[in-house]
Amino acid sequence: MPSRPPSLLLSKWHKMLNLPRQACPAWHRDRLLEEQIELQQAKGTIARLSEFSDIIFAISRAHSNGYLFDRQLPPLRANWHVYSYMFSKFTLRWSFYRTAAWLCRAPNVDGVREVINPAKDYKLAEVAGRHAD
């Protein structure tokens, strides 16, 4: 049975992030599988919390793109700490890239909508390449 659509809060948050739509359901399934593997490999409470938030993000992003998975989103009330971590983590990343684009006087700051981990140099180069003149 497919999971229910995301809550109003998640919908509004994804609308604010305005990430590029991924047209292929397989893209979302691949991200979810990657995150599930990373959760299994995570050591420590914070690492597991982070990876679980990535799983919720992958599912909710798929929902916001119109794809429903068999996987239910965990209830917000029972997992408020995970959702809080997710909202903070991805909103801060999104803000980081938009601020960096503004500081670098990027020609299309409004078009910079990224949530990739900026702590990894190769990912920073990937994002910069997408937004170069």
Rank of each mutant, 00 (worst) to 15 (best):
R105C: 04
N79H: 13
K15C: 09
W102R: 09
N79L: 01
G111F: 09
R29L: 06
A100F: 07
L32N: 03
R48C: 13
Y85L: 04
S60H: 04
A23D: 12
W80F: 03
A78N: 13
F52R: 13
S64M: 00
A106K: 14
I56H: 02
H63S: 07
A106H: 15
W102T: 03
S53G: 09
T45C: 07
L33D: 04
W80M: 07
Q22W: 10
L124W: 12
E114T: 10
L68K: 06
N117E: 10
R29Y: 00
S53V: 01
E51V: 03
A42Q: 04
R4M: 06
E34A: 11
L39I: 04
M86G: 01
A119V: 01
A62H: 05
M86K: 02
R77L: 05
R71H: 14
Y67G: 06
W102H: 08
Q72Y: 11
G44P: 06
H14T: 03
F96N: 04
I116K: 14
S50Y: 03
L32I: 08
E38I: 07
E38N: 11
W27Q: 05
N79M: 04
K43T: 15
A128Y: 08
A42P: 12
A100T: 05
A58M: 11
I56C: 13
N117S: 09
V112D: 11
S3Y: 13
Q36V: 02
L49Q: 15
K12W: 09
Y122R: 10
H28S: 02
H28R: 07
I56W: 02
A106V: 12
R4E: 08
F69G: 12
F87A: 03
Y67F: 15
A42E: 06
S88L: 06
W13G: 15
Q36F: 02
H28F: 06
K123E: 12
I37M: 01
R105E: 05
K120R: 12
A119S: 11
A62Y: 03
G129W: 00
W13F: 15
F90W: 13
H63V: 00
E51S: 14
P118H: 08
R31I: 09
L9C: 02
R29I: 03
S88K: 06
Y67C: 05
V115Q: 12
T45I: 04
Q40F: 00
E51A: 14
S50I: 01
L9I: 11
S11M: 10
F90N: 02
H81D: 11
R31V: 09
S53R: 01
